[in-house]
């Protein structure tokens, strides 16, 4: 039976792992390769590396990080942040990333999703969406014939939740899937960093709207929250950062908990074979 995935997310700034609370107050939590090895041992099903390096001069650092990690850790690795072109994507895939995530670049030019999927296959294109509840007039958003203006409560945001677009998050997810994205990574900017649980309504709306897998992100504070995101929110996978990085729970504990509550997960490393 297909297992729900647990995915630690590592925010990376100039080659070092950091994680902010609501994207402010960054705290250093270590070396990417070290953490990747640690999470692999702990039974993480995939890893997401989000490059939050501000300067494009430092982008090469991320390529090195990906190359180093993928030589040592043999689980799927998704890399996002600052990827704008087919060439950017190719560089990450050649360095050893299995998937790349697109966010702002896809909003600016949705055709990038189609082009990237045609070039590399849908399986390696993740559409990352930052969504936030907004009251008030929806504005206008369209792509060709397609009306993407907000109808649901959730609007797509860019720049870590600072800039609103007129895009409806649920419609944007659906459109992204049609263009060829293989997976949706949905982050609630309302719950991110709050540790009060994922936005279950948002997760459910997105999961019901797209035929591709959905990764829930933003708000994990305890293991109940993960259960809810997978069960009630109907997500296929949960992403979490700080609760793992600061040792509040291990990936193994999370899996045990979900398994005890009847959800299929890949068992944490038991009876593991020696790495050759």
């Amino acid at each position: 039976m297909l297992a729900h995935r647990i995915i630690p997310c590592l925010d990376i700034d100039r080659g070092r792992v950091v994680k902010g609370v609501s994207f402010v107050d960054l705290r250093d939590a270590g070396d990417p390769a070290e953490l990747a090895r640690f999470y692999n041992e702990a039974g993480a099903d995939e890893l997401v590396f989000l490059d939050i390096t501000a300067s494009s001069d430092d982008r090469d650092t991320m390529v090195d990080v990906v190359r180093r990690v993928s030589s040592e850790v043999f689980i799927p690795l998704t890399v996002g942040g600052g990827l704008r072109s087919i060439d950017d994507i190719r560089r990450m895939l050649e360095a050893g990333a299995d998937k790349i995530s697109l966010n702002t670049a896809a909003i600016n030019r949705p055709e990038l999703i189609r082009e990237a999927a045609a070039e590399f296959g849908s399986q390696c294109i993740v559409l990352a969406i930052d969504a936030k509840r907004v009251d008030g007039p929806a504005g206008v958003a369209s792509e060709g014939e397609r009306n993407l203006a907000a109808e649901s409560p959730w609007r797509v945001f860019t720049h870590g939740g600072r800039n609103a677009t007129a895009l409806d998050a649920v419609k944007w997810a659906g459109y992204g899937a049609e263009l060829g994205a293989g997976e949706i990574l949905i982050t609630s900017m309302d719950t991110d960093g709050q540790k009060t649980g994922y936005d279950l309504e948002l997760l459910r709306a997105i999961s019901d709207a797209v035929p591709i897998p959905v990764i829930a992100s933003g708000g994990a504070g305890n293991l109940d929250h993960m259960y809810d995101a997978l069960h009630e929110g109907r997500s296929d996978a949960v992403l979490a950062a700080s609760i793992f990085h600061f040792g509040e729970y291990t990936v193994s504990e999370a899996k045990q908990y979900l398994s005890d509550r009847g959800l299929p997960v890949r068992p944490p490393a038991v009876g593991r074979t020696r790495t050759p």
């Binding site: 039976m1 297992a3 035929p211 296929d236």
Partner: peptide, 13 residues
């Protein structure tokens, strides 16, 4: 009830 997603993506036994 949730439908099965395509691609079949993730860890399966």
């Amino acid at each position: 009830s949730p439908r099965l997603k395509v691609p079949h993506m993730g860890w399966n036994s």
